[in-house]
Design a protein around this nucleic acid. Structure first.
Length: 775
DNA sequence: GAGTTTGAAACT
DNA sequence: CAGTTTCAAACTC
């Protein structure tokens, strides 16, 4: 077992190597951005990675101290053996420990890498255990690492989940971890320093090495907290192998672990955890700090790791917002996490009751993409994707490319974060009062929300959120449903469709979309989802969102499916809000069955758009003003795609552009894979951006977006633009969901090599969205 | 604010 | 899958 192998990558025989995830990572390794992505995605299930997160939670810590956990951690070599044996037995704590250790190992200088993963497995021959463990870890993960919630989860869940370990690396890691833990139990000695560690190291090394660059600790705080925990643990000082010792001083090291957490959040059945959490601590339901990326980079503050962790964890809580789904719990599997996330907003205040509305989070998801998030719907897969994007984007530190990839993958997950942010900001009375944001329609809202989340995550800067909220809130945010017969339990209800509970502002009658009727809501949601998995997915996918979707690959992902839907306008000529496309501020795509489409944002037929563009172009340039101008700009942008393409280089990535881009992206998002208009416009993303950029300024904002859009689009688009412009991001974007949505046909035209690469990444990441695929 | 229009959602 | 009904938002007055 201990036969150390010097290769970081791990011995060929090692499980890690074998694991698809590992391979994937290794392949990606060359590309940093990709790495991050890989990690997150692949590890989605691997919560173990982020020990810090786990430790961070006070609960966990407390539990650790008392529990055998610490003991085990002491790491007597012998303990290892025992640990392995016990590993399966001791549910939560042990596993937990294992997870913690892993990171440590990774961090540890000792980190020899050499220890082949295989060794661990073989020695113990407990591979079977791994799967079991995995589930637990996953659960943990769900609970935000930092979050207190975790602790409850741990305790409760561990045993519960037998979990079928996914083939993911995480499983490996966990498995290794557990084994080590188990061994420790069985064996008297110390498990800490010995092979067990090594094993962990190996895993981590492999993972870390590849992903290290990309990995981020969710928050510095977490890392700090984690370390503190370690320090606190008696073992630390005494046992070199103690967690504390293992715990890397450098945040960077920590990052490895955390990224995983994030991943886990995303991929894993958040809903499950959420549900569990709900009972105990609904608050913490929030996803793990999706925020992390931002935090990590920014967060250096560590002040009170615990406290802050808590804050960070809050994010997770928000994410949990999925409560919607969580309540359903069911969703984990079927429904895409993304969808849920958006849907289930946590309501900090009311917890159970308000959750939905608070859920605005869904918006966050979209918001990321568009403005950061647009719609609560966004939470849906699309939203997730967007959210990912946002987060990814948000993280300024990361190279565009890297982040992008990550974001894309994470996006889905992050949605939750987005939610959180909203919550945080929103939770404050303002948001709530305003009422839940609606995903699609309330793009602005979403955006605001989304933005807020990101900010929160990053620095918790309320500014974006607020402002956006203000925008969105003013009009749309305040909007509420007015359902009379549907009980707000059908998609007719915007609130319900957005995955949020109806709030005060709503004028609905006999409303059942309230926390009180959570069960009913969940059941209804399930039913609807059963019929149409994409029902709660964002209708319109933003460019950013689209990118993530790409991973899904066209039709497979819910997002794409959503987009698939097009409007069916017959009389409105797609010039009124009756038209979803128009309402969303996106052009009609091939998917649309509209008649006499006049959508200013883009017509089904590229030709039409072009015509308009041409006309407008003549007019617009002189007229820089307002919506009309904007609209024109949009059209023009589309029309001028070609021109713009040329311009691209010259054009700065102005917000307007971004917005524009977003619009274009949206097109694809709509679903239609590649619309003529799209194609014409977006035939080349870069060009599109450019074109949009030019016109964006003039481009009319979508009705919903109008208020918020400017900011939102700009935000969302910014990254996109960057990506397009050739920055790593550009590549990523290209690869991102958009491509998928765009549909194969378009892909041909668009996909630059870079994009393709990104797509690949995404695709791999896709697995993270089990639900979607299932669908 | 009431009534009409519209198109999505839901139903058959 | 298509047609019809229901529904609520968007729109008009």
């Amino acid at each position: 077992m201990d036969t150390p192998q010097k290769n970081r990558t791990g011995t060929p025989g090692s499980k890690i190597e074998e694991s698809p995830v590992f391979n994937y990572l290794s392949n990606l390794s060359p590309i940093k951005p990709v790495k991050s992505i890989h990690i997150s995605q692949s590890f989605t299930s691997l919560n173990l990675t982020s020990p810090s997160s786990v430790f961070t939670s006070p609960h966990i810590i407390s539990s650790f101290k008392d529990s055998a956990f610490l003991k085990r951690h002491r790491f007597s070599d012998q303990s290892r053996a025992s640990d392995f044996d016990e590993g399966t037995k001791d549910s939560s704590k042990e596993e937990f420990v294992g997870s913690c250790q892993l990171p440590d190992n990774a961090v540890n200088k000792d980190f020899d890498l050499e220890h082949p993963v295989t060794e661990v497995d073989t020695n113990h021959g407990q591979q079977s255990e791994v799967p079991k463990v995995l589930p637990r870890t996953l659960e943990y993960d769900y609970g935000t690492p930092a979050c207190e919630t975790k602790s409850p989860l741990f305790t409760d869940q561990r045993d519960e989940d037998s979990a079928e370990a996914s083939g993911s690396i995480a499983s490996f890691a966990q498995g290794t971890v557990r084994e080590s833990s188990d061994k420790s139990d069985g064996v008297p000695g110390t498990f800490q320093n010995t092979p067990h560690r090594e094993r962990l190291r190996l895993h981590w090394d492999n993972l870390a090495t590849d992903a290290a660059d990309s990995l981020f600790i969710n928050s510095p705080n977490e890392a700090m907290a984690f370390r503190r925990l370690l320090d606190k643990s008696p073992d630390n000082e005494e046992n070199p192998g103690s967690l504390a010792s293992l715990f890397p001083d450098n945040i960077n090291e920590l990052r490895l672990a955390q990224p995983v957490d994030q991943v886990d959040f995303v991929g894993v059945g958040m809903a499950q955890q959420v549900n569990r959490v709900k009972d105990s601590q609904p608050q913490y339901l929030d996803w793990p700090p999706e925020i992390t990326p931002c935090h990590v980079e920014k967060g250096t503050d560590n002040n009170s790791s615990d406290d802050q962790l808590g804050s960070n964890s809050h994010q997770g809580v928000r994410r949990r917002c999925l409560t919607f789904e969580t309540a359903g719990g069911h969703r984990k599997s079927s429904t895409s996490v993304a969808n849920r996330l958006p849907d289930v907003p946590l309501q900090p205040e009311e917890k159970g009751t308000s959750r939905f509305k608070q859920s605005i989070p869904s918006k966050p998801v979209s918001a990321y993409s568009s403005q950061l998030v647009k719609s609560g719907i966004g939470l849906h897969l699309n939203a997730l994707a967007t959210a990912k994007d946002k987060q990814i984007l948000l993280p300024e530190h990361h190279p565009a490319g890297v982040e992008i990839g990550v974001s894309s993958s994470k996006t889905s997950f992050y949605p939750a974060t987005s939610q959180e942010s909203p919550r945080v900001a929103l939770d404050t009375g303002s948001y709530v009062s305003s009422g839940p944001l609606r995903t699609d329609t309330q793009v602005s809202e979403d955006d605001s929300i989304a933005v807020a989340p990101s900010e929160e995550l990053n620095s918790a800067s309320p500014r974006k959120k607020r402002p956006k909220l203000a925008h969105a809130g003013d009009d749309e945010s305040c909007k509420r449903c007015n359902c009379k017969k549907s009980k707000c339990l059908k998609l007719y209800c915007e609130c319900f469709a957005a995955g949020v509970y109806c709030i005060e502002p709503c004028a609905c009658q006999d409303c059942h979309n309230k926390p009180i009727h959570e069960d009913t809501v969940l059941a209804t949601r399930k039913q609807i989802e059963s019929r149409n998995p994409l029902a709660f997915a964002p209708r319109v996918i933003r460019a950013s969102q689209a990118l993530p979707d790409v991973g899904d690959e066209t039709a497979n992902t819910p997002a794409s499916a959503r987009h698939k839907r097009g409007c069916n306008c017959k009389k409105s000529s797609c010039l009124k809000k009756y038209c979803e496309c128009y309402q969303s501020g996106v052009g009609c795509s091939l998917n649309c069955r509209c008649e006499s489409c006049q959508n200013t944002y883009g017509r089904k037929d590229g030709s039409e758009v072009d015509l308009e563009v041409e006309v407008e172009a003549a007019e617009e340039e002189p007229q820089p003003t307002e919506k009309s101008v904007v609209d024109r700009g949009l059209e023009k942008a589309a029309l001028h795609k070609h021109e713009e393409r040329n311009l691209d280089p010259s054009f700065p990535a102005t917000p307007s552009r971004l917005s524009r881009l977003a619009v274009k992206l949206q097109f694809p998002s709509k679903g239609k894979p590649m619309r003529s208009s799209f194609l014409s416009i977006g035939s080349s993303f870069g060009s599109q951006n450019d074109t949009r950029g030019v016109k964006l300024s003039s481009i009319p904002l979508p009705p919903k977006f109008e208020k918020s859009l400017p900011t939102t689009h700009a935000e969302e688009e910014m990254p996109e633009l960057l990506q397009k412009q050739g920055s790593p991001r550009n590549i990523i974007k290209s690869g991102s969901p958009n491509g998928k949505r765009v549909s194969p046909p378009q892909c041909k035209s668009r996909p630059s090599p870079s994009r393709r690469s990104t797509r690949r990444l995404i695709l791999q990441a896709i697995p993270s969205f089990p639900s979607i695929n299932q669908q």
